[in-house]
């Protein structure tokens, strides 16, 4: 699973920065059929968690109403240099993760 995560290279303490995330996932609704007419089973990313250092800063529960290859962006307040770590799991139990360091100075 390919994913993209973007945070600014550097921030000053107290800055509000945007965390942007894009995950390659079909977000299969369970309502589609393949070219042979067979139902494609539902499989979506059900949960995305974002941690900044030790604390959880954002969590999303997703369903079939979220677009394929889901995009999420949310603001975080820069406190000190630390890792922004994103983890997710889909209906099939497949886990993924991506991280980036937010430099605060």
């Amino acid at each position: 699973m390919t994913a993209r995560l973007r945070v600014p290279d550097t921030a000053r303490p107290g800055d509000i920065v945007e965390v942007r995330l894009l995950i390659q996932h079909d977000m299969e609704t369970g309502f589609r059929r393949d070219m042979q007419g067979r139902a494609v089973p539902m499989n979506v990313i059900t949960e995305v968690r974002a941690r900044y250092g030790e604390s959880e800063v954002f969590r999303a529960e997703l369903g079939s109403g979220v677009s394929a290859n889901p995009y999420l962006a949310f603001p975080v307040r820069a406190l000190k240099t630390g890792e922004i770590r994103i983890e997710w799991v889909d209906s099939a139990g497949v886990r993924g993760g991506v991280s980036a360091v937010l430099n605060v100075a």
Binding site: T2, R4, R6, L22, Q24, A68, N69, Y71
Partner: peptide, 15 residues
């Protein structure tokens, strides 16, 4: 350039 979903394929292609 970030949110264009096609870039996921470009990134995988680079790998």
């Amino acid at each position: 350039e970030f949110a264009n979903p096609g870039m996921l394929w470009v990134e995988q292609g680079a790998k």
